[in-house]
Design a binder for these strands. Structure first.
Lengths: 343, 343
DNA sequence: TTCTCTACTGTGAACGCTCACAGAAGCAGC
DNA sequence: GCTGCTTCTGTGAGCGTTCACAGTAGAGAA
């Protein structure tokens, strides 16, 4: 009699079937399912055996209906779709988050807010309680979706310090300023003195902090600050390329560039190459992120590693804690200089 | 009296509240919510007004509990994570699918199966009925997850023709052979006769078809087939780079290369550049996909456009149809030659 | 008038689960 | 014996929706 007793049944087994099979009540099965407290070892064993035998899987809808939780979270990206297509950092983050969530059996709903229409639909979906919380990726300030979610009291964890959301919203970020300092110190140590910078968008804390780190280290080293060496970008490859061109035009004697993202650094490399500058001999180039893009260039990029694994793991941890009732938290993680061939 | 009557309530309004507000029964509200058949115009208006006034949003869990549907679908990627990090085609597809699904108010659950452990968890999740259907991206043959899902009768639509799943599984694909033919004809029209090819993985229909198209056109044109001109890759950038090196070593007189993916073409471009060959003067390079990667190269890639918008829209359409009870279907979409600077 | 048909509406039951509560069993202390 | 405490177990109620069914009203036909 080793065969399963399901016979020709179509419908999946319920908690009731498990209870009958194990010779206990629904309540006991439910207790085993939810942590196993106040259950005798004998009963727990019988229930687990019955679950295996029947192939029971909990019906999440029935559970959610009564608990009021959905046991799922949203991953919300409010960047323009070009950025999503271009920047592999999002993929790394997405992968990290799904992985961390899987350990808690929490599915991830992907929400890409490209248009205003999508923004509205997604906001409605989230505030209706269809997800318990949101992992937010939105670098720019004044994001109306984020503000609405915060106002609605939806548990929220941002990747990178969010702007204009007050201190009530959690975030996880790498130590941008410290990373920038490491890179510029590295360039100084190579003997470079005309160090340019292509910044990130200056309406984001990340962009501001990386620039601040650059300025600090130059000042500490007594290197003359030259505003012609500072050009701004928006993290995109194209803006890196344009930035490098401006830099070469304004300060032809530049001998190193700190670029605030690897993607922009790709563009910088292309522009330098077109201008006939050798990397790293004539101009050293340092990136930021350690994204997959950093090793797709030639030469491979020296860069500042953002600990993506830890960032995504912390985002998930903080979000689940907040869903569980804890207060918002801010987590800053250390970066690391990764030396490759571009410096 | 224009204020909402919600007062200090915390709990969201239910269908019952709407019914009371509109002066009708739950059943009538439910009918309005689900298509509005057999409802008088007056009642429908009253219900819609009440919905707006109360801010009612349907509780999907309660609905799912009784209908047995989850009204959500999974997006399952069984590629190794490096591929997901490297290839922006996945992002384009993902974006297209979320967008198409949003029009039907169907959320997308992201499932990335990197490890065996994840594969098992995801299979269990899906076969438990937590999603109504699956959008599958899995180029390689013998994928055990896909086979299990098919066997379990889960509605399934693959991107690209799946291998070894019999004819019972739906798929949407671009016309690989025809696209390859267009590209090789284009290279011939440019006067090239020593046309090499870097193939995709030959355990996938896409890889096989693109190679077949190449061979066909050369044969039709009476150009001598030379197996030294054929090297194989796996769609990755690195394999394109390695492929081009092999090609140059085996057939130094190559004057054009048809590369079966844009990402590989990036690698081919890098290898040609390193070898001192000018593109397109010395060697013309044609890609495949028209992925965002195609315009991030210099020179920008001539390529075969896969109609990603239509592919994702069709995948969603076919999947929803199949969930609705229709039979599996295969959809082949036409490609288009996009001329840029690399040919 | 009465019957039938169509268009619409209301009601109870059910979906599968968790939660609160009541009760049982075992054991100690009086 | 009774009381109190702890640990465990079963039961009824209810979460918010849809579905099947019963019922009503009005129009048209006999």
């Amino acid at each position: 009699m080793t065969m399963s007793n399901t016979g020709g049944r179509r419908k999946p087994p319920t908690i009731h079937d498990v209870a009958r099979e194990a010779g206990v009540s629904r309540g006991t099965v439910s207790r085993v399912l939810n942590g196993g407290h106040y259950v005798s070892p004998a009963a727990a064993d019988a229930v687990n055996a019955a679950i295996r035998k029947t192939g029971y899987v909990v019906n999440r809808h029935a559970r959610s209906l009564i608990t009021g939780r959905s046991d799922s979270v949203g991953f919300l990206l409010t960047e323009p779709q070009e950025r999503f297509f271009e920047d592999p950092n999002f993929n790394v983050l997405l992968r990290g988050c799904t992985q961390a969530l899987a350990a808690h059996d929490v599915p991830l709903l992907l929400m890409l807010a490209g248009t205003d229409d999508e923004r509205r639909r997604i906001t409605r979906y989230i505030t209706a309680g269809h997800v318990d919380g949101v992992l937010l990726v939105s670098s720019h300030s004044g994001d109306p979706v984020a503000e609405e979610l915060r106002a609605a009291g939806v548990p929220l964890v941002a990747c990178g310090k969010p702007i204009g959301l007050g201190s009530k919203v959690s975030y996880v970020a790498a130590d941008d300023r410290d990373g920038a300092r490491d890179m510029v110190r590295h360039l100084l140590a190579l003997g470079r003195r005309r160090i340019g910078v292509v910044t990130g968008p200056l309406d984001t804390p990340g962009g501001v902090e990386r620039l601040a780190g650059y300025r600090e280290v130059l000042a500490e080293a007594g290197v003359e600050a030259d505003e012609r060496l500072v050009v701004s970008g928006d993290y995109s490859r194209a803006s890196g390329e344009a930035g490098a061109e401006r830099l070469l035009a304004r300060a032809p004697d530049v001998d190193a560039v700190f670029v605030a993202s690897d993607l922009m650094a790709q563009g910088v490399l292309a522009a330098l190459h077109r201008a006939g500058r050798r990397v790293p001999q004539d101009v050293a180039v340092g990136g930021f992120d350690d994204s997959p893009a950093a090793v797709a260039t030639s030469p491979e990029l020296t860069t500042i590693r953002q600990p993506w694994d830890r960032i995504s793991a912390e985002m998930v941890r903080v979000l689940l804690a907040q869903i569980g009732g804890e207060d918002p938290a801010a987590v800053i993680l250390p970066t690391e200089l990764v030396k490759r061939d571009s410096t």
